[in-house]
């Protein structure tokens, strides 16, 4: 087991290296630069050149790459946009994104797993078709469109919109109200963020369950006259959940991608919006760091999933 984990950890190193290279290359090949992005007659090119020099942007790309890695590790990396340390910027934004994604993930798994089982148990029935249909409806809705419709609906119902991470006029309110205010602000964005995921995971759950049901031991259990529900929930579920664990690793990147749009629509001060703004203003250090961090998160997610899988299913280890 330990050997397996060490082997997987060692495999991460070239991948991480590749990730930093691609992050660096993509943003540096893009036209434009973090300074001089304005058309302001009061800012002559020589001033821009001087600024580039101050930022080491005049050095060869290889040198810049080494400098970036060095600064990233020593924490001396600053945003081009406002001179703040990049790590501090990310630390400020990360909680908002993590909370949003965590709530979305909870919604996804708590809803998708029962839905998947439900569908599988009644394969091709009316209910199965209905859930299938709604699952696909969920995957197919343009999330920003739905978000707009929901925002308009809240304005119509409550007379004011639900934006950002908390209400604005809340000085001196009770703790309970503040907590509920946070929850209220989380509700709509996290549901919208979750919709696509629910659909995907419940489909996987369904087919995974179907596969398990067809296995001999389940058929045997059924033949022995055990009640169907016991068979499904006790024997089937544990095995059907296995492939779902690995999916968690893949869910992370798509949730992060999804949060770019959701965070813009709901004025949610999270990492997705930060990354999007940073791409537009060519804030190299922020873009590269966010790319690297999120890719690392995905790697860790995959690794954890692999380990869980190995723990749960002994056969894996010997492959």
């Amino acid at each position: 087991m330990v050997g397996f984990i060490i082997k997987r950890l060692l495999q991460l190193i070239p991948t991480l290296f590749g990730i930093t290279i691609i992050s660096f290359a993509v943003i540096h090949i893009a036209p434009g630069s973090p300074v001089g992005n304005t058309l302001n007659p009061k800012v002559p090119p020589r001033v821009i050149e001087q600024m580039k020099k101050n930022y080491d942007l005049d050095k060869p790309l290889s040198v810049q790459y080494v400098l970036w890695i060095k600064r990233l590790i020593t924490g001396k990396l600053y945003s081009f946009k406002d001179g703040k340390p990049v790590m501090k910027k990310i630390k400020e934004r990360l909680p908002a994104t993590i909370v949003l994604n965590a709530v979305a993930s909870i919604i996804i798994f708590s809803l998708a797993i029962p839905l998947g089982i439900f569908s599988a148990a009644r394969q091709y029935s009316f209910w199965d078709n209905t859930t299938t249909f709604f699952a696909y409806l969920g995957i197919s809705i343009p999330s920003f469109w739905l978000a707009y419709l929901l925002i308009l609906a809240t304005v119509k119902i409550f007379g004011f919109p639900v934006l950002g991470i908390r209400s604005f006029f809340l000085e001196g309110a009770s703790t309970l109200r503040i907590i509920y205010d946070r929850i209220w602000h989380l509700t709509i964005p996290s549901i919208i963020l979750a919709i696509g995921g629910i659909a995907v995971i419940s489909r996987y759950m369904r087919s995974s369950m179907l596969e398990v049901i067809r296995q001999d031991y389940i058929q045997t259990a059924k033949a022995k006259g055990l009640p169907e529900e016991v068979v499904y929930y006790k024997h089937g579920l544990r095995n059907a959940l296995l492939p779902i664990i690995t999916l968690f690793g893949f869910l992370v990147p798509s949730l992060i991608s999804g949060s770019v749009i959701i965070e813009t629509v709901f004025a949610w001060p999270g990492i997705g919006r930060l990354a999007y703004q940073a791409v537009l203003s060519r804030d190299y250090s922020v873009v590269m760091t966010i790319n690297t961090i999120s890719a690392t998160l995905v790697l860790i997610g995959n690794l954890v999933a692999d380990i869980l899988y190995a723990v749960a299913d002994p056969r894996i280890r010997y492959r």
């Binding site: 691609i22 943003i27 893949f250 798509s254 992060i256 991608s257 770019v260 790319n291 690392t296 995905v298």
Partner: peptide
């Protein structure tokens, strides 16, 4: 696969 594809598309 590790990159959030949307960031990659954006860049």
């Amino acid at each position: 696969m590790c990159f959030p594809s949307f960031f990659l598309v954006l860049t």
